[in-house]
Design a protein around this nucleic acid. Structure first.
Lengths: 155, 155
DNA sequence: GAATGTAGTCAACTAGATTGACCATTATAG
DNA sequence: CTATAATGGTCAATCTAGTTGACTACATTC
């Protein structure tokens, strides 16, 4: 009996609020650390580069749900700040591979730790089991909605 | 045993994806209905005006987490489209009250129904109990993070 | 080897916000 | 009371992160 009278259609709003609160807390933290002004799009870029090698600007554009021009600009920012490098593509002379530098990989570990701390605080409130369920249920929605879940910030 | 191996710090990403998928589905639906190009910010405006009377542009700005100029512009759009009116403020001669028109109120009901349908689809996957829990757990995070949960789209 | 497709860049434009200046009205301090 | 400060709203200029469109260089396919 956890209900406490849920209004129909309220969940999306709550999702927005929680996600927004979490990202605000993270980016506020990063700001106090004197980091470059990293935005969510940069975070999603790190994520992709961590998961896959041989990522091109076009791949990044697909992942973020933006044009290749926008993706390239984001990559250039990260390059300027020393988080990634553009390397020649092993097989395609037109393309260049986007790859994290050591600084980039360090940042990913650091950011993951910060996210994890937010999660931990939440777990302390509602319990680890519930967080596991949450994870499961969110995954269910994502896989049900097909490839729709691009990562671009919402509008 | 619902875990299926959750990576630490993965939850925020999933929240983002689900929220993004939901809003995309909603706005796609609205578009096929031939609606004006309503954005999330408009939705959050409707929500506030539904909940409170005597809302001013400054109140809206606070709610959305944007400047009063931006909030005013959003209000003007909704006014142009006939969803809201600006009325004289009962006690403050400087201020004007933002209020939904009948068309605005109709829209709110319609949008709530669409959100609810997305929820229902989710409920069909994971069950109503789980959705109730989700609601409870999201609320827990929101109330723990204080007034931080402004509704402005994330970056 | 010619035609078509694709990765990337450059440049011009757009949307949605920001900052700053300002006016009118309200609230507060002497 | 009045003088001063604070507040709601608007106008104008600017910024930012994206877009579209045109183009080059390399790849693929026939």
């Amino acid at each position: 009996m956890t209900s406490s009278s849920r209004r129909r259609g309220e969940i999306p709003l709550l999702l927005a609020m929680v996600y927004r609160a979490m990202t605000d807390e993270l980016h506020e933290h990063l700001r106090t650390e004197g980091r470059e002004p990293l935005r969510p799009a940069h975070g999603y870029t790190f994520r992709l580069l961590t998961e896959r090698a041989d990522v091109t600007a076009v791949d990044l554009a697909d992942h973020l749900g933006v044009t290749k021009q926008a993706a390239s600009k984001i990559a250039t920012e990260l390059e300027t700040w020393g988080y990634l490098e553009r390397r020649p593509h092993p097989t395609d002379g037109r393309a260049r591979v986007l790859a994290l530098t050591a600084k980039g990989a360090d940042y990913v570990r650091h950011a993951d730790e910060l996210w994890a701390q937010l999660e931990d605080r939440w777990a302390a409130q509602i319990g680890t089991d519930r967080l596991d369920q949450l994870h499961h249920d969110l995954r269910a929605y994502v896989s049900a909605s097909g490839g729709r879940a691009a990562l671009r910030p919402v509008w």
